[in-house]
């Protein structure tokens, strides 16, 4: 659960994620464009990365939660966070959002061809099934992640596939770890201790 103290500022949060509040609060569903302009909205529609957000303004404390999942806070200082739209709980009103095409990666995991990016200065709250850990990636030490356990990443990272598909996998005797994402560069990858279902990579 996440408690946010508001003094007249605005935050944006997942639609319907308020569980309790005190003080004076206003909930307003965001318009079609979600502050990304018409082109942004169109991109989002094409990419299938739709997200429904509401704007919360007021004075007091608002408590946010969704489906009993864990909440991790990530402070952004002018850098960019890449996160699946379904893992986003709330973020500061002044942060900018957009859609980033990721190509093949999303296809395999059933998360669509694109991911959401959040950039600017402020706090982002992300959801994970179980507590998320941030794993550091430094040049020369690439990190491999199960696509289903991936939540978000930030920093200067290149992403590619590692596959380990052989005749055993084809026969249905795979280890269940045939496909991984490999991150190289400099940054942080957030991983959850649970694996999402779905996608064509259930092998």
């Amino acid at each position: 659960m996440l408690a946010v103290d508001l003094m007249g500022e605005t935050i944006r949060a997942l639609n319907g994620s308020m569980v309790a509040y005190d003080g004076q609060m206003n909930f307003k569903r965001q318009g079609m464009t979600g502050g990304e302009g018409l082109r942004g909205a169109l991109r989002r529609r094409v990419a299938g990365e739709s997200m429904t957000l509401m704007e919360i303004t007021g004075q007091g404390t608002v408590y946010l939660a969704s489906e009993a999942t864990e909440v991790t806070l990530i402070p952004l200082q002018g850098d960019t966070l890449f996160v699946e739209s379904e893992s986003l709980l709330a973020f500061d009103g002044q942060l900018r959002t957009g859609v980033q095409f990721t190509g093949l990666r999303g296809m395999g995991t059933g998360q669509g061809l694109a991911t959401t990016k959040v950039e600017g200065h402020g706090m982002v709250a992300i959801l994970s099934d179980g507590p998320a850990i941030g794993l550091e990636v430094t040049p020369g030490v690439p990190l491999c992640v199960d696509p289903h356990a991936y939540v978000a990443h930030r920093g200067q990272l290149q992403q590619d596939f590692v596959t380990d598909v052989n005749w055993r996998t084809v026969l249905g005797q795979g280890s269940g770890e045939s496909v991984q994402f490999r991150y190289q560069g400099h940054g942080l990858v957030y991983v959850q201790p649970a694996e999402r279902g779905g996608g064509i990579m259930e092998i």
């Binding site: 569980v19 909930f27 569903r29 939660a65 969704s66």
Partner: peptide, 22 residues
């Protein structure tokens, strides 16, 4: 916004709120 109905609790006491809407 998905928050059209709210329960207003006033007086003296404690309310227990869960981290989910299930």
């Amino acid at each position: 916004s998905g928050e059209a109905f709210q329960l207003e609790l006033s007086g003296h006491g404690i309310v227990y709120v869960q981290a989910s809407e299930k």
